[in-house]
């Protein structure tokens, strides 16, 4: 982005070197946002650590419930994982490890938390990225078509369709998709992330994963298509009433240009905000769909970790999800800045 003309620093001489970026409002703004993001991460992690400790029982209790453990054995287990230390010590140690992206060991998976998460992150990442982009594009197109034809039958048809999508819970969509495309037509795989034992590589692997994730992505999309469609329509209609649209028309430019160049870019802002919310809610919230389709994603991982009191794993999942959400929000702020020059850098 080009910056406002004129001297940027008060004294007129620009500082060179690695801190040159800090002398521009944009550089300072980005730095400030990064610091904020870091702060959010720390708060989330401290908060969830204490929440975790508030819940009665630890994974040793869970273990003790399923097999016979002597008092010595449980004490030894607790000592090995540092669970016998005072809370504050545990917290400080934990935060220190987090800073190096070391989440410790996941007892229920018998593997380092980092390995577990790295193995499961791709599934969720694909689900989230694919469903956010797909629902945003399709929903926005519906919204635009509805606004363009406001009050006409096309608008009414789209409204009814959106209402239908809006009112159908995603797990019902998932079950219907499985019934129709998986079982009845036999077109799509209905469970898992890839075909087991086929040993696909390269493009074959990508195609295999795509086929497995298509139905889950569609199931995650439908509700949000309705949301984007409704917000998009309302936003377009609102922008079309603004004064500058009248000015644009008075210039004698084509109605298409008024709509797609002048109005659309202004109307996109609320949709981008919505995308941020959608990412945040999907990162951990896809658990239902992951369960229905038997996908080893982050939602499932978190769910299992909670049930089995695997605190390390759960905190690792929370950390990763928060990092994703904070990052996405940062990207969205940057996008806002590109789309809306009025965004105040202060």
């Amino acid at each position: 982005m080009t910056q406002t003309s004129g001297p940027i620093t008060g004294n007129g001489t620009k500082k060179a070197g690695p801190f040159a970026a800090l002398s521009s409002p944009l550089g300072r703004y980005i730095l400030r946002r990064l610091v904020q993001a870091l702060l959010v991460m720390v708060l989330v992690m401290v908060g969830s650590f204490f929440l975790m400790k508030l819940a009665p029982g630890d994974f040793v209790d869970v273990l003790a419930g399923t097999r016979d453990l002597t008092a010595e054995q449980t004490a030894e287990l607790r000592a090995r994982y540092g669970l016998d230390q005072p809370l504050v010590i545990q917290l400080v140690r934990y935060m220190g490890l987090l800073a190096t992206f070391d989440f410790g060991y996941s007892p229920i998976n018998a593997a380092p938390v980092t390995d577990v998460i790295l193995a499961r992150l791709p599934v969720t990442a694909i689900l989230v990225v694919a469903s956010v982009s797909l629902s945003m594009v399709i929903g926005t197109l519906f919204g635009i078509a509805a606004a363009r034809n406001a009050g006409k039958p096309v608008d009414l048809g789209i409204s009814i369709f959106m209402l239908l999508l809006y009112a159908t819970p995603s797990f019902i969509v998932a079950i219907m998709l499985i019934l129709v495309f998986g079982l009845k037509l036999g077109l799509m795989p209905i469970a898992g992330y890839e075909s087991v034992g086929m040993g696909y590589t390269g493009w074959q692997h990508i195609w295999d994963v795509t086929r497995h994730l298509t139905l889950p992505v569609v199931a995650l999309c439908t509700f949000y298509i309705a949301i984007y469609g409704r917000i998009g329509r309302a936003s377009m209609l609102e922008v079309m009433r603004l004064d500058f649209v009248r000015t644009a028309r008075a210039k004698g430019i084509s109605e298409g240009r008024v709509f797609y160049v002048h109005a659309l870019r202004n109307a996109l802002l609320p949709l981008i905000t919505m995308a941020g919310l959608q990412v945040s809610s999907l990162v951990g919230g896809a658990v239902l769909i992951e369960t229905v389709f038997g996908l080893p994603g982050m939602g499932r991982t978190a769910y299992d970790a909670v049930l089995q009191r695997d605190t390390n794993l759960l905190l690792g999942v929370i950390f990763t999800s928060s990092l994703a959400v904070v990052t996405v929000n940062f990207v969205i702020d940057m996008l806002y800045m590109v789309l809306d020059p009025r965004v105040n850098l202060k």
Partner: peptide
Amino acid sequence: QRKLRRLRGEKMGMIFQEPLTALNPVM
């Protein structure tokens, strides 16, 4: 509409009351 559009701008122009909102904020 096409002909009218040509007239707007080539034969007649208009200035509005509110200069603060009359221009597209993102262009």
